[in-house]
Design a binder for these strands. Structure first.
Lengths: 406, 406
DNA sequence: CTACATTAGTTCCGATAAAGGACAAATTAT
DNA sequence: ATAATTTGTCCTTTATCGGAACTAATGTAG
């Protein structure tokens, strides 16, 4: 149930119905392609005539094209419709504390140019110059990509509601940094930046072709250098007043726990990040105040996982502890937002077969009755490149959004 | 930004634009009454002709009526429009663990028949019989109230998404109790039940005349026998998969804290409820497993507050501790949903002048940077009867909801 | 091989609603 | 009294949905 916003009303104009139905048709083509006009009409529960007009409109705009003729058991064969993603692309960038990633995708997030990676330049000004250069290089080296619709950047930190400034990214050492405008100016392209967890949640909320559609209430967890969390409720991303909503990474798990990059102690992130797991394996306490010891930096979670597979008892214990903390923190998330599903991504998911029961047990221990045991946990494998797809989704989804009315 | 729901599309029909604009007009009349057609047209940024048609429609339906002629400095005087709340009423019921409250309001939640209260019958079957009797009595004794649009009931517990069953109400000892249907059958009226915190949040999201409109992201806190929490994000109530979302009352504050009615230890609710404050004042530990000691039951928070005013050091300390816990728990809420405003209601607000700084300090201590210090705390006085108004809102708001499209 | 059934897509007309201009009604200032 | 101003209604124009009729393409029964 939605209220009409008394301050900022959006009256339905003469063309509003058309606009609504055009976006519905476009989204049905996006999610069900290939599809015929007749099938669209059935899905939309309206006449074929009305749909034809909408589709021809979309074709004229270059958003959809008519492709192969389909097969039918009887009667005239349908002409299939496809989303027109030809000669258009999107640049996706995943900024991480030590290493960053760049990929070019089509408008539904499918990779067109394979991922490249490079060490992260932590000075914002120099980073903008480097990124602009890499984007320009990649696009020039692949003229077949066509027009670039924009650049999506995910960052490990909070971004303001207008999407122009990085408010706080402790792991990058950034503090109210203007990032969107400089990069847009240097590249001449539209640039969208967003917190990594929120971007991943957004991508899942919009559904990826072939995969099962995401429910209206879910949580996305990105366990890597930090802990990115994105929350979707009522089918919409939870942003809050300053776009800092859903930041469950910094809820307290233990008041006397390890020191977090954000400054306080005992945050969930400080218990479950890759760095936390590696530190725990090495028997060192994580303290973000000091630089990361070389010994810790040299080892990755993947190393810990492979050692645990080889029977290293310390590695097994470190991973199990992380799993238990993951579940305890998730309990707070489940009580707070009551999600139907929890997506988990990150390097640690490669050991999920052995960790899942531990996470589940810790989760169920502290969840309230109605949702206990009901939140399905789904692993998002790293091969799917969820963060880069999230970055691409930042650019591509606005064109598919439902018009704002009432 | 909203997605079109690929599974359950709502195509714009011929009458959809009209429906949208009719609800906009109705809501503007609700929030700005009295108002002329010409002013409506200006607010909606459309022609007076279009508005006239909508308004005449609403008048014909009996939703709006044309009242007094207004004053204007020059030109023809406008005919004022009002929401038609004549000869219609709503029954609002606030179920609490020990005592319950009943009131009759008009369709915007204004009291028509003063509040009555009675001890709470905890057996659901007998309670339904008693409530139905009281509702019937009240409506028969006041024939001037006219038609009753329905009964809204707020409960201290979780209600399922369909609004028919109380899933879990620890303080009532209820456990998956069918409540809506029996009461509807006995009264012959539409019945809506909802968690008290959610209902209060809903009422505020819809705005009360005269008061400042609520922001799109806010939290409502009802501190009484338990701790009711309602969360609104993007202007919509956070419900989650099982309508158990926003239940921050049971996030852990300390793993070894007092025992909560929900069964686990250290919940926020167990630190800040009225019972917790009274127990703390008496130096007893709260343990929900046992019945409430007579000594505790005899004393109310109001008593503790008045004793603190008289200089009772123990009372002051007990209240200050509650305030500090309130702030600590709020920090988790603020990090999770980043609200622009926090409404606080409950008996303890009568001592807010001295407690506010303590709450604020504890809150700011653990909130993340972008939202730190930015969440405004607003007290909702008990005289405003927020829970009963919430109950009334359950019945009245659906008629004002924006049509679902896309 | 032909007629018919079936399905896809197009075209056209009627109904409905917003957009906007013309106009009458009501009122105040000059 | 006259002009100016504002409200509210009416009517025409334009855009959209809804549905029927029509054309196109294809398979199947006789």
């Amino acid at each position: 149930m939605r209220n009409t916003s008394p301050a900022n009303v959006r009256v339905a104009r003469r063309g509003t119905s058309r606009e609504i139905n055009r976006q519905i048709a476009l989204n049905l083509i996006r999610t069900r392609q290939p599809i015929s006009r007749a099938d669209l009409a059935r899905l939309m529960d309206t006449g074929r005539g009305a749909v034809s007009v909408l589709v021809n409109d979309l074709i004229a705009e270059g958003r959809v094209f008519e492709g192969a003729t389909g097969e039918a058991p009887r009667g005239r064969k349908p002409k299939f419709l496809y989303l027109d993603s030809r000669r258009r692309c999107v640049v996706a960038i995943d900024l991480r504390p030590t290493r960053s990633f760049l990929m070019v995708t089509d408008i539904v997030g499918e990779p067109l140019v394979g991922m490249t990676s490079f060490p992260t330049e932590r000075d914002p000004d120099r980073l903008v110059v480097e990124l602009a250069g890499r984007i320009k290089d990649t696009l020039e080296r692949h003229p077949e990509l066509g027009r670039c619709d924009g650049v999506g950047v995910v960052v490990p930190g909070m971004v303001d509601r207008t999407g122009t400034r990085v408010l706080f990214a402790p792991r990058l050492g950034w503090h109210d940094v203007a990032f969107q405008e400089p990069l847009a100016a240097r590249t001449g392209l539209p640039v969208v930046i967003e917190n990594a967890g929120k971007a991943c949640a957004l991508a899942h909320a919009w559904g990826v072709q072939g995969e099962a559609a995401a429910p209206a209430d879910f949580v996305f967890l990105s366990v890597s250098d930090g802990l990115g969390v994105g929350v979707v409720t009522n089918g919409q991303l939870l942003r809050g007043r300053h776009n800092a909503g859903g930041e469950f990474g910094h809820i307290p798990l233990a008041l006397d726990g390890p020191r977090c990059a954000c400054g306080v102690e005992g945050c969930w992130e400080a218990h479950v990040s890759n760095l936390a797991t590696v530190s725990r394996y090495l028997g060192r306490e994580l303290d973000s105040g000091k630089p990361i010891p070389a010994e810790v930096a040299a080892l990755t979670v993947e190393d810990v996982i492979s050692r645990s597979r080889q029977g290293d008892a310390l590695a097994v214990a470190a991973l199990r502890a992380t799993a238990r903390y993951l579940g305890s923190g998730l309990a707070a998330v489940v009580n707070a937002v009551d999600p139907a599903r929890i997506y988990v991504s990150g390097e640690i998911t490669s050991a999920w077969d052995s960790l899942a029961p531990i996470v589940r047990a810790a989760l169920d221990e502290r969840t309230l009755e109605p949702s206990r045991g009901h939140a399905e946990i789904v692993v998002v494998p790293a091969q799917g490149l969820p963060r880069l797809r999230g970055a691409a989704a930042l650019v591509t989804t606005p064109a598919f959004a439902a018009p704002v009315v009432a």
